[in-house]
Design a protein around this nucleic acid. Structure first.
Length: 633
RNA sequence: GCUGAUGUAGCUCAGUCGGUAGAGCGCAUCCUUGGUAAGGAUGAGGUCACCGGUUCAAAUCCGGUCAUCAGCUCCA
């Protein structure tokens, strides 16, 4: 057969495998190849190539290469667990973003000590460098082979008629698997089991909870160590830890999921809200505030009472049911309905920093990222159908501007019509075209999640990346074809008749609390000057400089610079260390020399040595400029 | 909510076999007035998460509750 490799045509005997091809290629390629692509389709190195075509070798730097290595590692994990606990039933074991896992059904849960034994057994299997073999079976024989593995039987039975049922086998261990895999276990050069967790069979909470073992694997010890190191570093920027260390915020046992903000955290929060108001005013929004507790009747009309009640906190007032708002929209709608609108008034952009409460499951809580009360930087836009595309573009640009100010990486997802949706095909088409058209006009890259929209409309989600690569949904633009109907919203068109406005919900930060959590991790607590709760700290060397220090503090504070002063009888090294631990951007040292000159010796965060002496005026000018430009270092 | 682990001073953590509690940081007082990442001494500070059980005796063993952590499910 004729194969094209790197643009070069070569001749091979029929039935040759990618391994045979590798024999003819440079040693480095052979060493690094984990899997091959034959005409774009992945195939294990040891399997016979199906015929003529282009062959490409895939190494660890390619996601498919990583996936193959880690998938084989998960088979080794399963083999090791079976060797130590033969009664364990196998579920599934895929590769994932940063590693792999395997789910087992066992009577006794796994322990950390057991993981050590599993790692030893895995090392033994890898050392033996057993070959993996692929084979296929007809359904009946496949079921017979897997008759003692009920989860595998279920998987085989769920395969559509006519599917290829393939297995991979190494050293007497056989697993149902589509592949591809490494040619031998010895190709796993470095691995580590990370953790044990429970996980529902097929991800459904109605099913049995299985025991999952997470692990990761690399092609070298160094890469594995670097990965483990990165995780350690990320732990240091955990916002829960930094929130406490920097005295910003915390969640106490007395209020699970209900965060406390301390004075410095409030400064940060208020600055974010000030910034939010500034950009929204410029973008043509008006601000409102709606009540936190509203009548059951309103929630019945909005549909929340029927569909969201288990997440709502309710109360009784004068023998009537009320609910603490889990969303701001019904209140926002009442504000819209307070009077009649003309098409000339639209679009109406109505923003609200709205505190909502939702009863989240206890196990879902996570610092500021997942809480039971949070402030949405919400806005509802009411408009004519023709205005959809331009409004979406406006919101997109606003969100993009905000994320750029903080230097965030993000990606965009578009979710379309789900199964159980309301509204007509025409309505959905118009709505989806509006969102998609706006994204296309802007030339944005986005992922489409077919059928992942809400029952009442399509949406665009913005996902921000945190310090360890986790993504969090923050901004969303959500089209709503439900509430305008339920609340019978209208505006008067040029024809003098009533028309139904289109409504969108949108948030930029998502929740102020979550955004602060992400910001804290993103900057590792070293906030840019414009956001830093304490912008400058004045440190004296001896008490002879106290008077000059207090004078400098007044000069800075008079121009609005947030300042702390340390007049304690401590050595300058000690005072500086404390200021650095608190990640304060400007440290101003005053001794006899500076007191006499009327200057301060300036040190900035992140630089080891002083950047020189400045007068108060010079310093103020420098800091003001840095704040004005919202500079990030 | 589910699975597993954890809960000791404000923080980070020791605490052996069941015999009644420790360190460092922080805090207070005193000494030290010094030049870019921790000067020294003394002292205060604990219902060992909470409730119950076993025991002559429980931080320690057992049960329950609450909270936290890692995941699953769900979600801004």
């Amino acid at each position: 057969m004729k194969l094209v490799i790197n643009g070069q045509e070569m001749e091979f005997a029929a039935g040759a495998s990618a391994l045979d091809v590798l024999e003819k290629l440079p040693k480095e390629v052979k060493k690094e190849a984990l899997v091959a692509r034959h005409n774009g389709k992945l195939i294990s190195l040891m399997e016979p190539l199906p015929g003529d075509g282009e062959v490409e070798f895939v190494a660890f730097d390619d996601p498919d290469g990583r996936w193959t290595l880690r998938h084989t590692a998960s088979h080794v994990l399963a083999q090791a667990v079976k060797a130590l606990r033969p009664e364990a039933k196998l579920a599934i074991g895929p590769a994932i973003d940063n590693g792999f896992y395997y789910d087992f059904d066992v009577d006794e849960p796994f322990t950390p000590e057991f993981l050590k034994d599993v790692e030893k057994e895995m090392s033994r299997i890898i050392k033996k460098n057993s070959k993996l073999e692929r084979f296929e079976l007809p359904r009946e024989e496949a079921l017979e082979l897997m008759k003692d593995e009920p989860y595998k039987v279920e998987l085989i039975n769920d395969l559509p008629e006519g599917s290829v049922i393939s297995f991979y086998k190494q050293e007497g261990f056989t697993d149902l698997c589509a592949g591809p895999h490494l040619p031998s276990t010895g190709r796993i050069k470095a691995f580590k089991l990370m953790s044990i967790a429970g996980a529902y069979w097929r991800g459904n909470e109605k099913n049995k909870m299985l025991q999952r073992i997470y692990g990761t694997a690399f092609t070298s010890r160094e890469d594995l160590d670097a990965y483990v190191q990165r995780l350690e570093e990320a732990k240091k920027r955990d916002h829960r830890k930094l929130g406490r260390q920097l005295d910003l915020f915390d969640i106490l046992d007395e209020g699970p999921g209900f965060p406390f903000f301390f004075p410095k955290g409030m400064i940060l929060r208020n600055l974010l809200e000030d910034y939010w108001r500034e950009i929204h005013r410029k973008a043509g929004y008006e601000e409102i505030k709606t009540p936190m507790i509203l009548s059951r009747k309103l929630w019945e009309q909005s549909g929340h009472w029927d569909h969201y009640q288990e997440n709502m906190y309710t109360t009784r007032i004068d023998d009537e049911d009320f609910a603490i708002k889990p969303m701001n929209c019904p209140g926002g709608i009442l504000v819209y309905k307070r009077r009649m609108w003309s098409y000339r008034d639209l679009p109406i952009r109505s923003g609200e920093l709205g505190l909502v409460h939702r009863h989240e499951l206890s196990g879902a809580l996570h610092g500021l990222m997942r809480v039971r009360c949070f402030t949405q930087d919400d806005a509802h836009i009411f408009m004519t159908p023709e205005q959809i595309r331009d409004e979406i573009k406006g919101v997109y640009n606003l969100i993009d501007e905000v994320y750029s100010v903080f230097g965030f990486k993000y990606h965009v997802e578009l979710s379309t019509r789900p199964e159980n949706s309301i509204g007509t095909d025409e309505m959905w088409e118009q709505a989806t075209d509006g969102l998609q058209g706006a994204l296309d006009d802007l030339g944005v890259d986005y992922v489409v999640n077919e059928g992942d929209g809400a029952f009442y409309g399509p949406k665009i989600d913005f996902h921000l990346e945190d310090s360890i690569g986790r993504t969090w949904q923050c901004g969303t633009i959500q089209l709503d074809m439900n509430l305008p109907e339920r609340f019978d919203l209208s505006y008067i068109g040029p024809d003098g008749e009533k028309h139904r406005p289109v409504m969108i919900h949108r948030v930029v930060f998502g929740s102020i609390e979550r955004f602060i959590g992400i910001l804290t991790e993103h900057f590792a607590g070293a906030f840019p000057l414009w956001l830093a709760p304490v912008q400058a700290k004045i440190l004296t060397i001896t008490d002879r400089a106290d008077e000059a220090a207090l004078k400098l503090q007044k000069a800075l504070e008079d121009t609005g610079i947030r300042t702390e002063i340390d007049l304690r009888n401590e050595k300058i090294g000690f005072k500086l260390r404390e200021a650095r631990v608190m990640k304060i951007p400007y440290m101003l040292v005053l001794g006899d020399k500076e007191a006499a000159e009327g200057t301060a010796a300036v040190s900035v965060r992140g630089q080891r040595d002083s950047i020189g002496s400045m007068t108060a005026d010079e310093l103020i000018a420098r800091m003001k400029e840095e704040v004005r430009t919202r500079a990030i270092f």
